[in-house]
Design a protein around this nucleic acid. Structure first.
Lengths: 196, 196
DNA sequence: GTCTATAGTCTGATAGAC
DNA sequence: GTCTATCAGACTATAGAC
């Protein structure tokens, strides 16, 4: 008996929950959080609305559960970067970590980079998307508060997130996408680039 | 009697319509198109829902009217760029034109760069946001179909649009914002940069 | 664990008075 | 040109059977 993630006693439950979250993410990406109803999620899963409510008490809870893994990883990477001594190392660590999260989650980071519905749903449970944005901007921009750097950093974050989640690049394998997104970040943040 | 735009015989009407569109844009930016109800628009204007319906038959019509001026200008700039002979000139014209539109409309371009509700509302009347994205990508990326260039171009478009519409840069005057956004575009598209 | 049935609210939209 | 009043339908969410 190989223990699955968080080894559930009864089988199937964790699977339905996972399928539900994957379906919700897909629909959220396609129609936006506010544009996606519980009915749409239920229909796509082939179950009823009430079945969805068995797994999650509210729609906001679904939104939170969809966003959680990405936000958790992002939180970790930002914290790690903050602890580094040299600023160049901070920027490099945050950039590579951020790009890696974008690539592995694809549409998810793009979703909460742009959807007001996600922010609204998470204002209580998480410290808001804006908080991540601010902390990342501080590291990328540096203490000087230079406007040009701030705008470049903002463009890097949004550009990487939305491009990594764009459907037209969905076919690219992780390594290829990661390399190109890193290149985007290095250009905008003024970091040394590898051979392209 | 100085003729206003499209000189309306009765006064006041054009003004209410303009106020309505400005209010709608603000709310759309804040809550997303699907997250904004006609009730919210009416309340913000201090009128009733029925008063809103006097000016526009449907919500989609409001969305279309909000997006129209930006899309019209974008369409023009893309067409102008296409007619140029040298590829470098095409890229430069499209970049400066795009940045200029972003700066003058601020939140608007960010809105239809990211909100699925806008795309859905305009699938009939306009040839869809995707069409603009494709045409811009063709010019920015070039005929070779290089993946690195395509990703850089996509990041440039989304990064410029979302950064230009970001609330944290709303205080910057047009010239400053334009210069920095141009810099972002030139870095990503590999165009020569002026002195920073 | 998934269902039916339904409550209660809000939506976009219409008709018609002023 | 803006209002009141109202519509049918969709929404989130709940209660309780199986």
């Amino acid at each position: 008996m190989t223990a699955g993630p968080a080894a559930v006693s009864a089988s199937g439950q964790e699977d339905t929950r996972t399928r539900l979250l994957a379906t919700a993410l897909r629909l959220f990406t396609e129609h936006g959080v506010e544009g996606t109803s519980l009915q749409m999620i239920a229909d796509a899963l082939g179950v009823t609305k009430a079945a969805v409510y068995y797994h999650f008490k509210t729609k906001d809870e679904i939104t939170g559960a969809v966003a959680e893994p990405g936000l958790r990883e992002l939180d970790l990477v930002v914290a790690e970067a903050s602890r580094l001594r040299r600023r160049g190392a901070q920027v490099d660590h945050l950039l590579t970590g951020f790009v890696d999260i974008v690539v592995r989650h694809r549409t998810l980071v793009a979703l909460f980079s742009r959807d007001p519905g996600v922010t609204r749903a998470l204002t209580d449970s998480w410290a808001t998307r804006e908080n991540f944005s601010v902390r990342m901007m501080e590291i990328f921009t540096g203490p000087e508060g230079d406007t040009n750097r701030a705008i470049a950093a903002h463009a890097a974050i949004t550009g990487i997130a939305l491009t990594g989640g764009a459907p037209q690049f969905a076919d690219l394998d992780d390594d290829t996408l990661r390399a190109h997104l890193l290149d985007v970040g290095r250009r905008l943040l003024g970091r040394p680039r590898r051979v392209s």
